[in-house]
Design a binder for these strands. Sequence first.
DNA 1: TGTTAACCGAGACGGTACGTCAGGTCTTGGA
DNA 2: TCCAAGACCTGACGTACCGTCTCGGTTAACA
Lengths: 195, 195, 195, 195
Amino acid sequence: MSGTRPGRSRSEKSRTAILTATRDLVAEVGYEHVTIEGIASRAHVGKQTIYRWWSSKSAILADCVLDGFILLPRELLPQNDDIRIALTEWLRNALVAIGDPNNASLIRGLNSAAADDPDLALVLYQRMTEPYESSIASRLDEAAKLGELRSDISAADVIEMLFGTILYRLLSRLDVGPQVADNIIEILFSGLSPT
Amino acid sequence: MSGTRPGRSRSEKSRTAILTATRDLVAEVGYEHVTIEGIASRAHVGKQTIYRWWSSKSAILADCVLDGFILLPRELLPQNDDIRIALTEWLRNALVAIGDPNNASLIRGLNSAAADDPDLALVLYQRMTEPYESSIASRLDEAAKLGELRSDISAADVIEMLFGTILYRLLSRLDVGPQVADNIIEILFSGLSPT
Amino acid sequence: MSGTRPGRSRSEKSRTAILTATRDLVAEVGYEHVTIEGIASRAHVGKQTIYRWWSSKSAILADCVLDGFILLPRELLPQNDDIRIALTEWLRNALVAIGDPNNASLIRGLNSAAADDPDLALVLYQRMTEPYESSIASRLDEAAKLGELRSDISAADVIEMLFGTILYRLLSRLDVGPQVADNIIEILFSGLSPT
Amino acid sequence: MSGTRPGRSRSEKSRTAILTATRDLVAEVGYEHVTIEGIASRAHVGKQTIYRWWSSKSAILADCVLDGFILLPRELLPQNDDIRIALTEWLRNALVAIGDPNNASLIRGLNSAAADDPDLALVLYQRMTEPYESSIASRLDEAAKLGELRSDISAADVIEMLFGTILYRLLSRLDVGPQVADNIIEILFSGLSPT
DNA sequence: TGTTAACCGAGACGGTACGTCAGGTCTTGGA
DNA sequence: TCCAAGACCTGACGTACCGTCTCGGTTAACA
């Protein structure tokens, strides 16, 4: 009653080589200029081995993300008492990380892949932001319970505004300097209305 | 006494046909699946005529934007006395417009083009958002003068947060329903801090 | 225990289809109007398959000749006791064969290919005339031994004059009627000097 | 009742420049690689000026020949008393002339043009060989009258054999050394039959 | 002395074919 | 059954020329 089939089993070595090569190539030349043949060549792998396990370039990239081959520097939310200071710090770190050309290329690549394969966009964006979201969301909820924040605001909406602002800066500019972190947090916390 | 060069002059008809075909194809099949040959064929134009005037697919798309062939529904800021109500209305309209599949495809296409050609991203994003930005910015400034808004906040930062949030929703989801407009504006105006 | 390289081996079917299509197209439209795309299309073959194995149009034609895909009607020298009658018969047959429009087109094509690719001319002309030459040369030598011909004359020179005369007629005229065979042989055997 | 039309008349300068450029290009790169654009560029002439007066590449080449822009070194038949010595000398000179790479290229080019445009072949070959033929033919006739040659042989046939042999050597070999002149003349005069 | 019409160089136009790159499939021999 | 290698057909790439069609400008005969 074993589920094992006859024949040679999948080569973990090839799988790893393919995902590594894909991630590196996306960072180096951009998603659009990555080719299956280029991946196969760099990974010392036959094209058929790629097509046997993945259906498209974006699917490989998706696995890169799901298997942790692509990992933005996971800036954990600093354990500061003041939620506002913690968030400012985190945002500034995130902007610095994104400022690294390698990371920026990767994000732009993921962005292209998502634009090309809308069904994939959900998976990609969720996995990319998930680790950050969970820590931020719990911190926001906690702060709300402590009365440091309004409690009638959805953490998801806040996070969406944060990530959207970061992504927009990345896509619309070549530089994504961290200097705006303070402004964003100020607006986010105090709002536009005069006091 | 003239600076005109010898030879037949550029055909405005061909130029228009190429830009129109490009815009339509991007909306129909997505930026990555648009081919120069496809554009030439649809525009009844020789490939060389395209390559004579543009250096790449993204350059054509850039001209589509610069020449107004791609124009998101230009939602003017409603002339409401209350800046907050006006902005909410505008954001809701914008989200509805972006919810139209045709517009969404175009934006996704522009996004891909920008990701592939970073030097172009600046032009693209600026021209895309320019008409909205100017009207919103002046309205924000005006409101700040009237004391309806804080005056120590950069309108550019606010606008960036608005557009970022919209773009993020578009890219990370298949639907971009207008129902979140209220939440966003609420956060933007009142901030997260408890009153 | 084998020198075979890895990978799929060359398709004999494609090779044959390409050579056949080339030969037919040269005969149909003339060498100059044959295109690689036309060959590929007629042979139901990818262009790359052609370029993988041949470097130019003339190289394909060379292989057509070397592999026997182009074969002028191999007029064997009639087994007549009299060398002169045999040669006259043969020359007349050759002129008739060359008079066939299909054959004439092929020869014209080979001629163009040779003119375009001098390094190839040698191979082409040798292979084209080889079957005739060997039979004629041996017959001439034999006749010389029997005292029917002068023995101080190079058979190669004689053959060259024969083929040259035929080719010249083919290239310089639209018709290459067989009626001159007698004249040529008469000159060749008896010479111009008065008896 | 004058036939002259109003308007600018044809530029002789352009016509000359076109024919010169064509002749030079054929000699330099070979007939097949000569392009109309190349001719226009080299002659500092608009393409339209070429198409206004000629219908094809081969037609230009025909005019080159007809107008004397292409002229093989016109080896006149030496005025030797002995027709045989005169012919040998002439043939040797002709083979030397054809041995010059520039001339060989031109002849190969004319040959290609003729192969491509059979209706043109007649004109081309006739004009190319005409000057030689006339002098040789008259000399042969004269010799026949003097009893130095058989009188029942068509001079045209003899000339054909001579030119055919030369052309064949040119096309089938890279070198066309003059050393065979004696052999050819010997065969031509004495024939193959044993004395 | 204009006017008219055909010429001229230049060069953009819609196309065809070039030779190359990559896509996704199929076929080798070997693990 | 998987694997690396690599040939296969397909289709798009960006370029070179084709033959045609404007451009502004020149040049001759006619009015």
